[in-house]
Design a protein around this nucleic acid. Structure first.
Lengths: 139, 139
DNA sequence: GTTTTATTGCAACATTGTTGCGGTATTTGT
DNA sequence: ACAAATACCGCAACAATGTTGCAATAAAAC
């Protein structure tokens, strides 16, 4: 019953979701992590739950604007907490997903909004993924 | 034996690949298409080939720098031709993958190189995916 | 505490991707 | 043009990932 657990409860209730153990556990893992967490990593930490429950839990949390996918160029999907600007109506992320070639961590990095203009196109969202060496691995 | 087929033969031979039917067919599909082609679409057009052959063919063509993946935020992977700047040593794409919310086409759009700077990071590659309405669907 | 309703677990299925190996097609050299 | 060498394909089997329906269960409301 730490202070973070109370927060997570609040988050779920304000999204009109029942505060069940799977949800609290999944949210806790993603919330504690500094980097985005891969699906398999979450699954490994939650062996007592059904595979299906994890899929459904993650999808629900995404739909409610609580977490988001970091869909990097890999078969693995990563998950991270959303900021307050995300709601059930939609996600609004103004950050870069940075993938480190060395430690393979995926981090969400705040950045200036990247504005792109294309003739005769309506651009509603821009997603950026950068690859390289992160600050921790940088000597 | 159209003129494009000769080109594709050349492409394969200069990559030291045998010009087999599966490869020519796959390349032909991706080359003819204006937009990036999804895996399932390629598979559908090549029913006579084995599933495994398609996976291996696509991977080989990527490794040789002939085609590239457009890894948009979807379960489906899309494929498109590379420019001449891609080789076996690596891919170098300076374009945006644009996903139309209406027609769901994925197009590669040339753009100014997007330069991003992050303190204490080495950035080797930047991938950008934009979503919205494409020029064809734009009234 | 009981009822109502959302959520979970299970089983079964569907899709996507991988590996090894024998047979086959493409090249290379003559 | 033909034979030999080698790269490639097809098949079978497997592994991983993701989905659906339904009965059992847990959370919230009264």
């Amino acid at each position: 019953m730490t202070s973070s657990k109370i927060d997570l409860n609040k988050i779920l209730r304000s999204a009109k979701l029942k505060a069940t153990k799977p949800r609290l556990d999944v949210l806790s893992i993603i919330n504690k992590a500094e980097a985005a967490v891969s699906h398999s990593e979450i699954q490994a930490k939650l062996e007592s739950f059904d595979r299906v429950t994890l899929y459904r839990t993650l999808n629900t949390l995404i739909e409610k604007g609580i977490i988001h996918k970091a869909h990097v160029e890999s078969t693995e999907v990563f998950y991270a907490m959303c900021t307050t600007s995300c709601t059930e109506e939609g996600h609004k992320h103004e950050h870069i997903h940075f993938v480190c070639d060395k430690c393979e961590e995926v981090t969400c990095i705040d950045s200036e909004p990247i504005s792109i203009k294309l003739p005769n196109h309506i651009i509603s969202e821009v997603r950026v993924q950068a690859t390289g060496i992160c600050d921790k691995c940088f000597v």
